[in-house]
Design a binder for these strands. Structure first.
Length: 271
DNA sequence: CGTTGAACCTGTTTGC
DNA sequence: TGCAAACAGGTTCAAC
């Protein structure tokens, strides 16, 4: 369920429930999921959680002891979840890491990921920064307009591929890329560098609006999501054959090739 | 170097 | 109903 808005919702819930908690114990189910590079989880025992942040689609917890901080980065992949559980809750298949906590509002945090796309990484500060620098480009919510404009201008590939290219723009996945392009009325296969500045501006504004709306809704990139107000989370994703929400008369189509692209053939022209 | 598609896994949905 | 194929929110690596 994880793109930027979902990761943001995870982070805000973790902040409210376990920020400041002390790590009492940890359990690793799959060493191939929890990458213990230079760091090992042993060090983390007895430390307290002092920072909780999002990087791209990943969630990063900072653990500290005696002014030294180390980090745990959780990639959620396609199916990864961080879940609060009570210590006597039964073991659920595909649980790869359990953190026992004390002093927060939740006694246990579990990493559950059936499809196992996604890892847990342990880093010191420089390790974290090096990793993030290599993997994550700008954040779509905070990138300055001028930087975004230049970055789009400089890419000759497909617009949708650019939106999902984490090393350039970190946080947007297939669902939100589709929504952003639909709301901007741009075909997924338009060439990024050929957009004019006015169009890029529209893309920039819509991108932030779509992501912020989704965060406000508590994350919507799940199938059959329905916001409390009864409005569907997505306009086009997974809506093949349904009429275009703009009532242009055409039906939503799907392009297969990279990932599934859902779009309206009249509202989003390829040119 | 930039871009594209297949591979990685398991669970669920779709179609015969 | 039963079974197999198709498909799924992401990232990485090889091939062009």
């Amino acid at each position: 369920m994880p793109e930027l808005p979902e990761a943001e919702v995870v982070v805000s819930q973790l902040r409210g429930r376990v920020l400041g908690a002390v790590l009492k114990d940890s359990w690793v189910g799959r060493p191939d999921i929890v990458r213990q590079g230079i760091e090992t989880l042993d060090w983390y025992r007895g430390t307290s959680i002092i920072t909780i942040q999002r990087r791209g689609k990943s969630v990063v917890l900072g653990f500290s002891r005696n002014h030294e901080t180390r980090y745990l980065l959780a990639e959620l992949g396609m199916t990864g979840l961080l879940l609060f559980r009570s210590p006597n809750a039964s073991y659920q298949k595909h649980t790869h890491l359990i953190l026992s906590l004390e002093g927060g509002l939740e006694p246990e945090l579990r990493y559950w990921n059936p499809r196992r796309f996604g890892r847990i990484y342990l880093f010191d500060r420089t390790g974290l920064e090096r990793f993030c620098h290599k993997r994550f480009g700008c954040d779509p919510l905070t990138v300055p307009w001028e930087q975004f404009r230049q970055l789009v201008k400089g890419r000759r590939g497909r617009l949708k591929a650019l939106l999902m290219y984490q090393q350039v723009i970190a946080g947007i996945g297939n669902i939100y890329a589709n929504e952003i392009l639909y709301r901007t009325r741009l075909h997924p296969y338009r060439t990024a560098s050929r957009l004019n500045s006015r169009t890029i501006r529209r893309l920039y504004d819509v991108m932030q609006e779509v992501l912020l709306d989704a965060i406000r809704d508590g994350g919507s990139s799940v199938r059959d999501f329905l916001a409390p107000n009864g409005i569907k989370g997505h306009l086009v994703y997974d809506k093949v054959g349904e009429p275009c929400p703009a009532k242009c008369g055409k039906r939503i189509r799907r392009l297969v090739g990279e990932r599934s692209s859902f779009f309206c053939p009249t509202c989003q022209r390829r040119k």
